[in-house]
């Protein structure tokens, strides 16, 4: 891995009251690579994810983006820095159509105030064509779409925002077999297009089907990081429960 990481975290720690949620964690994110973060409940996965997406700020440690030390103040700034997050709740407005959701909060306008529907539809068509996602209709209400389609819209929004790193929180947890596979295919296409993907997941089968590297957290500490080729699900499970070598 001679290439410079896009995001470099060193010694990141975070405590909530007396509870240490993350302790001295190092993590590197590369473009065009999929990193999976796994661990038991309370291992610190979502704290780390929320620090990367700007929801929480670390108590200690440094974050560099493209080599520059930086403090990510809020999710808005994270997006501007190229880190887009797809939260588990997807942040969709069910009553609105696909195009409106894809551009939520960033609607293109004409004459300063009027939403440019045409630009929105064209942009949406481009995003879904790039991701090779089939949307039945851009005018369909998002609440009436399937879980996989909803996940695709949330991921599409992240790519439409020029996310160079896309963080996905449990992207397959609410999906069936076929829909999960479609989302995993989508992850591979994002990777092929040069986007870095971070997946937080419980499902080791899904993790092993897409991840280049797998990082294991236990009780707020990084207990291991393995390249996909050099590890097995058993190895990872041992790291998660703390029974194996460290």
């Amino acid at each position: 891995m001679a290439e410079q990481p896009f995001v470099e975290c060193r010694g990141v720690s975070k405590a909530f009251g007396n509870v240490s949620a993350l302790h001295e964690v190092d993590v590197d994110l590369y473009r065009g690579q999929v990193l999976a973060i796994v661990g038991d409940n309370g291992a610190g996965k979502s704290t780390l994810m929320k620090i990367l997406s700007g929801v929480h700020q670390p108590d200690r440690g440094t974050i560099k983006i493209a080599g520059e030390p930086i403090r990510i103040a809020d999710p808005h700034q994270a997006r501007e820095l190229g880190i887009a997050t797809v939260f588990q709740n997807l942040a969709l407005v069910d009553q609105r159509d696909v195009a409106a959701n894809l551009f939520l909060g960033r609607e293109p306008v004409r004459a300063g105030i009027f939403v440019n529907r045409k630009a929105m539809r064209e942009g949406a068509r481009r995003v879904f064509a790039d991701l090779r996602v089939h949307m039945p209709s851009l005018a369909a209400e998002v609440g009436q779409l399937s879980g996989g389609q909803r996940q695709s819209i949330a991921i599409g929004r992240a790519t439409a925002q020029q996310g160079r790193i896309i963080i996905m929180d449990e992207p397959t947890a609410a999906l069936g077999v076929q829909e999960s596979q479609k989302v995993l295919d989508l992850v591979m296409r994002l990777k092929a297009a040069g986007t870095g993907v971070v997946i937080v997941s419980h499902n080791l089968r899904h993790v092993f089907s897409v991840a280049d590297r797998i990082m294991v957290l236990r009780r707020g500490r990084r207990v291991g990081e393995r390249l996909h080729a050099e590890t097995t699900p058993d190895d990872i499970v041992k790291l998660i429960v703390g029974a194996g070598r460290e």
Binding site: P75, H76, F87, N89, A91, V93, L104, G105, R157
Partner: peptide, 8 residues
């Protein structure tokens, strides 16, 4: 929440 998360 979604509106707030997307910067509205």
């Amino acid at each position: 929440e979604a509106a707030r998360d997307t910067g509205i």
